[in-house]
Design a binder for these strands. Structure first.
Lengths: 341, 341
DNA sequence: CCAATTTTGATGTACGTAAATCAAAAAATA
DNA sequence: TATTTTTTGATTTACGTACATCAAAATTGG
């Protein structure tokens, strides 16, 4: 049987009340007594029964998710996963709130983070826009003792406790190798379609992609990056235009959202050409395109995993507990038409 | 606030004791009264607080994992993950036991399952050997009300509650497409190295592989399957031999364990040749081979995820609770040298 | 209608922890 | 030493559920 507070009290030769004072850092314990108790805790290997403690405290974990108000499939999916987590709130003792802020707007995000600092939730998860002010606001939250995890897009250099998202440099590198190998030594031009170079995840994917391309596939020439702002209409226009005026194009890497437009352009302009296409994010549209051969591979991050992971980590940090690192690592999923879920 | 037993008692107009009798299916409740209570439960949307219930019951979940006594990296890894779960037992209220049975021996497995039926654990996870007797023994356990999940290798047609492993047909298909695309239209012969055609997961991988190859890559010719019994020595011998006497070989698919031997053979016999190689299971050996270019892609199943998933599912089934399907889906990981964890 | 039986209620204890109160003991200060 | 202050102990209630016991009520059988 694992030891209880009673066992510690007995072992340390103090009363239950004193053990409680030590465990919950309440005042009124002499230094020597506190040490006796802490020694007993260590000797017996006591770990607080979190379930019992939460029961006694009637504890709930108020968590806030801050998302950009973007109208694309990926963000919709992320939203849905958070709502699914909200549906599980009772069993998980969470009280989750979703806050939407304008996309690509650091100041709006900072304002929201400052509001949050006053509310003192048990934890905050945010899709970070990469800006110094945001970093500072996050650091302030952390200094106030509020656990923070970044979601989907990281904020390196900040004090955030954890990042629940994929390694985007690795994602870009993987895309490059897949594309390069699939093209099997052919010579030609590659179109890169991004959302915006203002968001870190897109910059990192591009960086990884370009680096492997340069090193390992010199026969493939990268055209200047197209920025589609994660918007299907813009993406359609850009891709249709590029395919129209350059028939040296043999591959496309779409590293952002808005693939609906890309797919439409491909069907219109390249039904006859044998393009190799790699895109990010598995949605109803990209899935269909993968199955019909319009897209050759999809790189994906599992939004459900990211949300569940963020919640687990925030709860653990709030309680000062350890997490299982391997469980919280968000993998880069690679889907071909054969291994779709 | 979520409703408690007290709320149900009040709503149904009965005493707490009666609610308890209904909830824990104790005798001595008239049919009409039972219905009143059940209606109140439904109306209020009551769900039992599992944490509080477990606390009151002092419940632990005795779980048994049955593994084949195979000496390969994958099984060692699986073992290690279970031991890691054992280390978390206190917090998770589990009491996990590992039982090893001789590999490829259905009768030994059946005997173990029969022993287990008497012990009445809260749940059983097993790496299934595919045989009618095993199926029958599993079905008996399930009939006795013991939750059963298959691990790594499934037992279709049995009554097992869940399968914690990858879709091996999809894995084989994926391997075929990767190999086919990487070879980019070249013509040549493909070596398939399996462990044994007696285990279902290997048969399924082969089936998926052969089917995509036949359909989509007719220029590639599959040589007769080599059975290495998941043994590095045997694998080495078989591959060295094949490469020695057939220089039409341009690709290898290793769908079982024992890749240490495969890698050694490749370094000895094919350092100069440009073979494309796809293997299963990420281990220290295959990882190194992927990084140095000996292997081109590794398909992997995350043993840690499988073990944690099996435990979650067994606990949920023991309590009659729902699981989050997406969370329990074991994905096929595809690793190139760029996205290694 | 009475007795036997079944059903229901009332109540208490337990699980491991949190949190509060009040009294007692010990230490620090005057 | 007397007094104040700090530290410690003892005890109680609570969280939501499980489980047991005994008494009271309702139902059933004869």
């Amino acid at each position: 049987m694992r030891p209880t507070v009673h066992d510690i009290a007995a072992a340390a030769g103090v009363s239950l009340a004193t053990v409680d004072r030590v465990l919950n850092q309440r005042p009124g314990v002499r230094h020597v007594t506190r040490e006796k108790v802490e020694t007993a805790i260590r000797d017996l290997g006591y770990v607080r029964d979190v379930a019992a403690a939460n029961l006694a405290k009637g504890r709930v974990y108020p968590l806030t998710f801050i998302l950009p108000a973007s109208d694309n499939s990926f963000m919709h999916g992320l939203n849905a996963e958070i709502r699914a987590a909200i549906a599980r709130s009772a069993a998980e003792r969470t009280d989750i709130r979703i806050v939407e802020v304008p996309a690509f707007d650091p100041q709006a995000l900072v304002r929201e983070l400052e509001t949050l600092a006053a509310e003192k939730p048990s934890g905050v998860a945010l899709v970070a826009t990469d800006a110094p002010d945001v970093r500072a606001a996050v650091d302030r939250l952390v200094h106030d003792g509020i656990p923070v995890v970044t979601l989907v897009s990281d904020l390196t250099g900040s004090l955030r406790h954890h990042y629940a998202g994929v390694d985007n440099i690795a994602a870009g590198r993987t895309a490059a190798r897949l594309l390069g190998r699939f093209l099997g030594g052919a010579r030609g031009e590659i179109v890169i379609l991004a959302g915006s170079m203002l968001v870190r995840d897109h910059r990192e994917r591009l960086e990884g992609f370009a680096s492997v391309m340069a090193q390992e596939f010199p026969a493939l020439h990268l055209l200047p990056v197209l920025e589609g702002r994660d918007d299907p209409e813009v993406a359609h226009m850009l891709i249709a235009d590029a395919l129209g005026k350059n028939d040296g194009i043999i591959g496309i890497y779409s590293l952002g959202a808005g693939n609906r437009g890309l797919i439409r352009a491909l069907k219109e302009k390249a039904a006859d050409r044998s393009l190799t296409v790699i895109a990010h994010e598995l949605t109803a549209h990209t899935r269909a395109a993968l199955l019909d051969g319009t897209i050759d591979a999809i790189l994906n991050q599992d939004a459900g995993h990211e949300v569940r992971s963020a919640i687990r980590v925030l709860k653990a940090k709030a309680d000062g507990l350890a997490v299982i690192d391997a469980q919280e690592r968000i993998r880069l999923d690679i889907f071909l038409k054969d291994n779709l879920p």
